[in-house]
């Protein structure tokens, strides 16, 4: 690993306790600019909990988290989003009763400059900002291939497209780091293939850095530059896909687990 690459995200010995349970135990992770890094591990290994600490939902009991070199322990999720971090959820959390376009528009709100009254009174600057927001949203929907559904209610979309919309909504916040929690969960093979391609495209065209959790091994091996493996909250291995595939500890951890949800 050439270390002159820019470090986007780093966790140092990050741990969290829930009562007696140590959900994540001294987890250290590095994500460099433009990388796709995967976290894998059996159910309940602490992957989502690690995401929740990184995104500010939980404050780690011990350890430190750095985004772009700045310590971010205990900073609220919305503030982290305004500093360039965006995520999706394991169980899709769209704004269900709103349209596809509105979902993406809401992603833009974090960068809104005009205040409440100048926006509602539609003062020239604020009105222009609203218009640009709409334009960007439509462009983004076009990029992710959802433009034709822009006026549909989000919950009416088929499952695969809902996942895609959730990613689009996260992209609308203009992140430098995108966190995807099991983006392929519940997808059929065709949808998974399309998703793999989509994630690649996001990285290349938007110059994105991506950290993802995934159970779908094919996708993980195809797409990741590096992989971290968690078991019972502890890292048991990390490395490039080839190393992980042949690592005996990883094979043991996954024995008896289906590699696909």
């Amino acid at each position: 690993m050439a270390d002159e690459r820019k470090l986007i995200l780093e966790t140092k010995d990050m741990s969290i306790h829930f009562g007696g349970l140590i959900a994540v135990n001294s987890f250290s992770l590095k994500v460099y600019e433009h990388e796709i890094v995967a976290i894998i591990g059996p159910n309940g290994a602490g992957k989502t909990t690690a995401f929740n600490m990184i995104t500010g939902v939980y404050t780690p009991t011990e350890g430190e988290i750095f985004l772009d070199g700045q310590k971010i322990n205990g900073i609220r999720p919305d503030i982290l989003t305004s500093h360039g971090m965006a995520r999706t959820f394991q169980n899709i959390r769209l704004f269900k009763n709103l349209t596809v376009l509105d979902n993406v528009l809401i992603g833009h709100h974090v960068h809104k400059e005009a205040g409440f009254f100048s926006t509602v009174l539609q003062l020239p600057k604020a009105a222009k900002e609203e218009e640009e927001m709409r334009k960007h949203s439509l462009e983004l929907l076009e990029f992710v291939g959802l433009l034709e559904y822009k006026d549909e209610i989000a919950s009416n979309l088929p499952y695969g497209l809902q996942r895609r919309l959730e990613i689009a909504r996260a992209l609308a916040t203009r992140p430098k780091l995108l966190l995807l929690d099991e983006p392929a969960a519940g997808m059929n093979p065709t949808e998974t293939e399309a998703l793999t391609e989509f994630i690649h495209e996001i990285r290349e065209k938007l110059n994105m850095t991506i950290l993802l959790i995934e159970h779908h091994m094919q996708l993980v091996m195809d797409i990741s530059d590096r992989i971290y493996v968690l078991e019972y909250g502890k890292e048991i291995a990390h490395g490039v896909p080839k190393e992980i595939q042949s690592n005996p500890k990883v094979i043991k951890a996954y024995l008896g687990e289906e590699d696909d949800e």
Binding site: T55, V57, R76, P77, D78, T81, S82, A86, R87, F89, R93, L94, F95, K96, N97, L98, D102, L105, I106, G107, H108, H109, V110, H111, K112, F116, T119, V120, Q122, E130, M133, R169, A170, A172, T173
Partner: peptide, 24 residues
């Protein structure tokens, strides 16, 4: 406007709204 949609997003899903950068 954007502010109105921000309010709706809080109604729809607070957790997601906050993750999208809405100051609840």
């Amino acid at each position: 406007t954007s502010y109105g949609r921000a309010l709706l997003s809080i109604r729809e899903d607070e957790v997601a709204a906050q993750a999208m950068g809405i100051n609840l």
